[in-house]
Design a protein around this nucleic acid. Structure first.
Lengths: 278, 278
DNA sequence: TATTTATTGAAATAATATTTCAAAGATGCT
DNA sequence: AGCATCTTTGAAATATTATTTCAATAAATA
């Protein structure tokens, strides 16, 4: 179904005078209209209740209540939220834009994640006792998150941003997890090459499906990175959040392979922290 | 504003029998309810119109029409997404649940963030050259994110999870940023006490508004942590994401105080990385 | 300008939501 | 259990809100 606001704007020219009054008011204050009666809207738009309901029926089969319902459904989908964050946005606009953008990224990431890739990734995590995770910049944070998660269920996981140290940590029994938004991070690519020589499998968590790193991975999980093109690093955090989201889903899929057991380990680890440090 | 469906589910236990009938129907068929009259809904839920409108008013100040409007705004949200992630969920269900939960957390966080608190926080960041950021566990990642962001715009920022080292780093000119989901982390509270003795101001980023840490902060930014009660740490990542989201908004508000200047610094820092490391 | 046609809003009507109230049911007390 | 009290319930009464009617007015056409 089309947006009512859009439709009203489109058809504005074909409306009569009083219809235009009502239409204009609705376009300017859609969120207020939602909580107005026909009479109130008529007053606000300097028209009559009759004109209001006539207009409502014109737009929407179910009359004014139906129109209000459709307006409400559209409220959450504000129009120019796609814009780059602007220097003079007020906090509300900023919040809306960020929320919108983040939601977009998560939806897109959901679409990107295939069952097969996740299943294969879980397989790799299960079959390797030692898991070495590398990411640099913001991706280092994601690496850190994955380490924390794996340690909690008794997996041996290691992370550092020190490439020398990291290289030394790679054992023949390791699984190498490479995290990179662009998929072109030089350090990650070098580590991938190193892993190849040692026949260590690579799990790549990458934004760009077509990147070099995405091609190197034995298993590749991709996430949304559509915001990266924007001038400001507005999207940096959305990419970060998308990466964390991928890790989270991967983690829960791993838990599912032995749910009760892992759950108990997580409980234990929480308990231990509580007992000794709180 | 909280999700009505969520609220209904939460409060289900406290409802009377006929209220539960109505509530259950709404939870199962929210998108149909939107187009039903009180009488129709009563029939469908095997109750009476009176009970329906009574229930509507209980949930929503503006009665049944208002409830329909709010339901419409929430359209298309599956009811059982509120559940804890289950051991036998397939990937699609898992993805839906996670996405839903994350969106919820972000919305709630948006509602929690007040302009005043953000403005004060920005003020603190502006007026202090040295910014010391502490978080432990998942919050350490958030601390890391904030450090990266601040360094990019030429602020002197420091983070470590080593409390001894961290204590030594606190100067009289420092701003102490404490990040904690529960707001009860022992280490953070000790650092808060230390800061008090040195008269160093505290910016707290906390999930729980009523926590000890929230009370200690000179400025307090809160984020959603509603998922924390859940058995499994399903919510751990949503809290983390909510924290990152707060940091992101804070950061952009800081940028706005001198937009072009900061933007240029960010561009320069990207350029430098590209030139020397890619 | 006279005639037709379209538009408008006040009032009448219809639809819908809400409140009232008496009956049924649940709860607690002896 | 038996009685009293408080709660819940739905049918009917009422109030609110939306819609249609229709006469008046304005615009368009010849």
């Amino acid at each position: 179904m089309k947006s009512v606001l859009y439709q009203i704007r489109q058809d504005m020219a074909s409306y009569t005078k009083s219809e235009q009054k009502v239409a204009t008011y609705i376009l300017h204050q859609p969120e207020r209209v939602i909580h107005m009666s026909a009479e109130e809207l008529a007053q606000a738009a300097k028209s009559s209740a009759a004109s209001v309901t006539r207009f409502a029926k014109l737009i929407c089969e179910e009359g004014l209540p139906g129109l209000k319902i459709r307006l409400s459904a559209e409220q959450s989908m504000d129009t120019d939220l796609y814009d780059e964050v602007a220097p003079d946005d007020d906090l509300n606009t900023l919040k809306k834009k960020m929320l919108f953008r983040t939601s977009q990224a998560l939806h897109a990431t959901n679409d990107d994640l295939s069952s097969e890739a996740i299943a294969q990734a879980v397989g790799l995590l299960q079959t390797h006792q030692q898991i070495n995770i590398f990411g640099i910049g913001a991706s280092a944070l994601v690496a850190g998150d994955l380490v924390q998660k794996l340690l909690r269920i008794g997996k041996s996981a290691f992370q550092t941003t020190d490439v020398h140290l990291f290289s030394s940590s790679l054992q023949s029994v390791s699984l190498l997890v490479l995290i990179s938004n662009s998929g072109e991070t030089a350090e990650a690519l070098k580590l991938a090459a190193l892993a190849k020589t040692k026949q260590i499998p690579i799990l790549a968590i990458v934004g760009d499906t077509l990147s070099t790193l995405a091609q190197q991975g034995d298993v590749v999980l991709t996430h949304d990175h559509s915001g990266e093109g924007l001038a400001l690093r507005t999207a940096a955090t959305t990419s970060l959040i998308a990466q964390l989201y991928v890790v989270d889903i991967l983690y829960y899929c791993l838990l599912q392979t032995d749910f009760e057991h892992y759950l108990q380990m997580i409980r234990d680890s929480r308990q231990t922290i509580k007992q000794f440090f709180d």
